[in-house]
Design a protein around this nucleic acid. Sequence first.
DNA 1: TAAAAAAGAATGAACGTTCATTTTTGATAT
DNA 2: ATATCAAAAATGAACGTTCATTCTTTTTTA
Lengths: 194, 194
Amino acid sequence: MAKLQKSIDKRNALVKATIELVNNNGFHATPMSKIAKMANVSPATIYLYFENKQDLVNQTYINVKAAYTKYAFETYKATMPVEAGFELIWNRIADFKLNECENAMFLAQCDNTPIIDEASRQEGIKHLQPLLDLWARGKKEGIVKPMSDYLLYAYAINPLSFLMMSQKRGAFTLDKTHLEEAYQSAWNSIKVCK
Amino acid sequence: MAKLQKSIDKRNALVKATIELVNNNGFHATPMSKIAKMANVSPATIYLYFENKQDLVNQTYINVKAAYTKYAFETYKATMPVEAGFELIWNRIADFKLNECENAMFLAQCDNTPIIDEASRQEGIKHLQPLLDLWARGKKEGIVKPMSDYLLYAYAINPLSFLMMSQKRGAFTLDKTHLEEAYQSAWNSIKVCK
DNA sequence: TAAAAAAGAATGAACGTTCATTTTTGATAT
DNA sequence: ATATCAAAAATGAACGTTCATTCTTTTTTA
C-alpha cells in the first residue's frame, strides 16, 4: 500500500497545483516548472504521471468534472418526485460551486476556452445523465417545460457559474437569501406555469 | 486621411486576428508572430500600435465589449416601458451573441479566465449601465423582482452565453422557437409573479 | 528630403521535455 | 532482524525550440 499511496498523493498534489495555478494565472502563465514546484516535485517527475502538459490538464479536467457530478448526485435517488429531486440536485450543485470554488472556477475556465481536448470534454459531459433523466421524467409528467436540455441547463444550472465567478471576483457575496431567490428563479424558468 | 485610415485598418486587422486566434487556439497558443502573419504585418509593427501582448489583448477586450454594449442599446430609449425595453435589449443581446459569435466567444473566454487585467475588466463593465437603470426602474414599479443585479444578469442575460457556446460547439442549434422559449425563461426568472 | 512607419533579422529569456544519475523501495537471502 | 540488490521512482541539469520584444535597415509618406 505504501508505494501506491505515495504515488496517488503525488498525482493529487500535481492535479491540485495545476488547478490553483491555472485559476490564478491562466493556462498560458502556468509552466510545468511552477506546477512541479508547488507540488514539491521535480519537473521530470510530472512525466512519470502524465504524458505531457496537455494530458495533465485534460486529466485534471476529467478529475474535477467527476468530483462535481459525484457531489451533485450523491444524495439523489431516481425514485424521488421531480420537483424535490431537482431542488435537491440544484442545492448540491450550488453548494459545490460556492464551497469548492477552486474546482468550480477551474471548470468554468475549461468550459469557455479551447485548452481541453474535445475527447476529454465529451468524457466529462457523460456524468450529467441523471439530471437529464430527471428532466425527461419531468417533461413526461408535464411538470418541466418541454424544452431542449441545453435551454434547461442554461437557465437552471449555468447561472450558478456566473454567480460563483462574480463572488470570486469580490463583486458581491451570495448569502442565504440570494440563494433562495436564485433557486426560485431557476425553478421558475424551467417549470410549466399552471 | 490616408495615413490615419491606414493605421486604423492595421489596428483593426490586429484586433481581428487576435480574436480569431485566441478563439481557436487559446491565449497560450497564440504567439505574436501568428497574429502578425494573420494581419499581414511584421511582428515588429504590432509594437507601434500596442505596448506589448498584454496591452493588445486588453485593448481587444475593451473594443469588443464596447461593440457588444453599443449593439445591445442601439435602439433602446430610456423612455420605453420596462417590459418592452427589456424585451428589446434582450433580443439585441441575443442577436449579438448568436450572429457575432466570434466577438461573443472572445468575451466569454476573457470573462472566465485571468487573461485580462482587472482595470480593463472594470472598464468593460461600465457600459452596461442602461440595463441596470432599466432594472432599477422595473423594481421601483414592482415589475422586476427586487434582487441583486448580479442575480438578474445571471438569469436573464448570462444563459445566452452558455447557449452561444453550446451552439458554437455544434452540440445543438438555436432556432426561432428556442429563442422565444429562452426569452420566456429569462423574463419569467426576473419578473414579479402576480 | 526629412520624418514616420514598417520590415526582417537578431536577441535573450523561458518553456516543455528528455537525459544521465542518484535515491528509494521491497523482495530475498542470510 | 539485517544485508543485498535489482527494479522503480525521482531528480537536477541540459537540450532544443519557441516566444516576446528590440535593433537596424529599408520603405513610405507628405
